[in-house]
Design a protein around this nucleic acid. Structure first.
Lengths: 350, 350
DNA sequence: CCTCATATACTCAAGTCGAGTATATGATAG
DNA sequence: CTATCATATACTCGACTTGAGTATATGAGG
């Protein structure tokens, strides 16, 4: 599940943006809606978490592979997605899971676009590094290109203290012009929780919450593009906070990152990203590529082995720079045992 | 997240039903699609978990409150949902979260219906018992009416051993006619995992997986209605396994139940179902209404208090049948502290 | 005032988890 | 060919968590 998709509408408040057309809505004819299927296809290549993007010919911005859902051609949403991705990239998908359906008016705009009524269904797909080489179109990019503030592998990213935090605090001071929810969570609190300020801890799963807050504060390019009022208030002095994406694709990617980070902790999905045989340290590096901070090596080994997630192949891998490492493979049977566990790691806090 | 929505398509296999129109799909014009917004509104009344259903005039079956999404009238999907629900039931929603988007062809049929191209977005809403009385239309029904095999409050439900298990085993023996996935999980294993047979444990979160298995085996009325081949094989001797619902509403409700059951364990959503003041035992009864089996009273208290989820109001409640109980209220501040925890209960296995 | 039913407090052993130390072993430099 | 290095793997230990139980508190009702 997305880490906390519902933070905004927790505890009986209402989404500030909702409820505008309360009574007016009534039993109007459903206007034709187009459904867009979007895939965040994730792999780990050389210990770097990457996502598959398509760079349109005329566009300067990247986008996820996507296409409209056609109920005549596609039996299910997911088969439609697989078809689109294979057509656009030549990549056959393995593990696929639905993320979220976004339908906010105005969040699907392109510059100069008439903002058609599009509902986006986001999907997460995981691909093993080996398969990732089959790619025909599109390219793999580190997901931290789009979310530099999520990259804690070398400690707290500078962009946070230098660019993001001061502007967020400033935004927290300025008055909000929209109608307030019934019981609003103060902006300072939302910032503190999302970004772990003032003694709070950084929760690596709250990727979407952070992006949405930056969007709401007008700090990402997509907000300006969509004509958000907050965005214009910053003027032109605003630095670029991560590379923007087409439509609402960055929002979908944020959802995807949050979901993988959450899910590897309680389901054995990490192995979707691994080749058949691997060393425990390679596995750990892959987990760390996804989660960020470093794990305690000995405990990671104990955990993975005692949970029965892997079994030794009998082979060893030399050239590791030290003592040769045993090779392991995923025990697919764990899925057939009860509640298949994930890598229940607790990331080391910095 | 739904407990394990992706069980079928785990480990590089593919959904048996997908992939049919692989090449044919191509860049066809997106046919017009109607989007249905559906709400599973849950409350706990007198220690019984209930869901709000609408009984259509001519229909014999219950349905969830729903309506089409109109992008001109509704700014967001969620505001559209709130509007529909309020119109249909007079109930203003508090906590709302999106569940899943279903688009399978043929799963939205009504008897004699031409199966329009409808995509259903399911939502979960939680309501406090007090608010639940404001209802103008519709009625509250125990969710176990629709899923009798999920009701473990008095031990294992008889319907499992008497009706479900033998038929599932029989279905496991019969050959499947559809194209098999790349690496199929044998039916016996799926049954064992979903229903905790042969030494497996019953996982109360796998509500959707169980329903989908029953649907695939043709054991629920919706499967027959949708013209599934397996369904006809059973002839007319099939007992009614739970009350059916309109369209794919039972699938949405299954998703909702699984989601609440999962979510109360790691987010403080249980308090959405409680009045302002409550005793710890009342809280425990509500958790048990959702989860099923009984919890250890003393440990439950320790857990809830030490997690800082509640604070005493100073009042006590007499008439409890024994010593008076202290009244507590939810500490809303926990949401503002870091990763707001749920009631991390481990259900007692029977 | 005795009994009952429930509420609340406290104890204890087993398991889990974070963190560290100790040992094994191929590669490589000299 | 041996010392050194870097990594792999094994083991230890204390703090904390968790399941399960016992003991005590207190209003209600006969």
């Amino acid at each position: 599940m997305v880490a906390d998709m519902n933070f905004k509408r927790r505890v009986h408040e209402r989404d500030p943006e909702a409820e505008t057309s309360h009574v007016a809505a009534s039993r109007s004819e459903p206007a034709s809606v187009e459904i867009g299927l979007n895939a965040a296809i994730v792999a780990v290549i050389d210990d770097e978490p990457v996502v598959l993007v398509i760079r349109g010919e005329r566009e300067a911005v990247d986008g996820l592979p996507f296409g409209p859902f056609s109920p005549v051609a596609h039996r299910t949403l997911e088969s439609g997605l697989r078809t689109w991705v294979e057509e656009q990239t030549g990549l056959g998908l393995g593990y696929v899971e639905q993320l979220y359906t976004f339908g906010d008016r105005g969040r699907h705009a392109e510059p100069g676009d008439a903002a058609p009524h599009v509902v986006s269904i986001g999907y997460l797909a995981l691909t093993e590094t080996g398969h990732a080489r089959d790619l025909q179109h599109g390219s793999w990019r580190s997901w931290y290109q789009y979310f530099p503030w999520e990259d804690w592998r070398k400690g707290k990213p500078e962009i946070l203290a230098a660019e993001i935090e001061p502007r967020l605090r400033q935004w927290a001071q300025s008055p909000s012009s929209r109608s307030a929810p019934v019981r609003p969570v103060p902006r300072e609190d939302r910032i503190r929780i999302c970004f772990g300020l003032d003694g709070g801890a950084w929760d690596e799963e709250k990727v979407l919450d952070r992006f949405e807050l930056l969007y709401e504060a007008g700090l990402v390019e997509e907000a300006r593009r969509d004509g958000r009022e907050a965005a214009s208030a910053w003027g032109s002095a605003l630095p670029r906070l991560g590379a923007p994406m087409q439509f609402d694709h960055r929002r979908i990617l944020a959802t995807a990152i949050g979901r993988v980070r959450a899910k590897i902790k309680y389901r054995p999905v990490i192995f979707e990203l691994m080749p058949d045989d691997f060393t425990l340290f390679e596995l750990q590096k892959t987990v760390e590529a996804i989660l960020g901070p470093h794990l305690h090596k000995q405990n990671f080994r104990r955990l993975v082995e005692s949970a029965g997630l892997v079994e030794p192949t009998g082979e060893v891998k030399t050239q590791t720079g030290g003592r040769p490492a045993k090779l392991f493979r995923f025990r697919r049977e764990v899925v057939l045992e009860r509640p298949a566990p994930g890598v229940r790691v607790k990331a080391v806090r910095v």
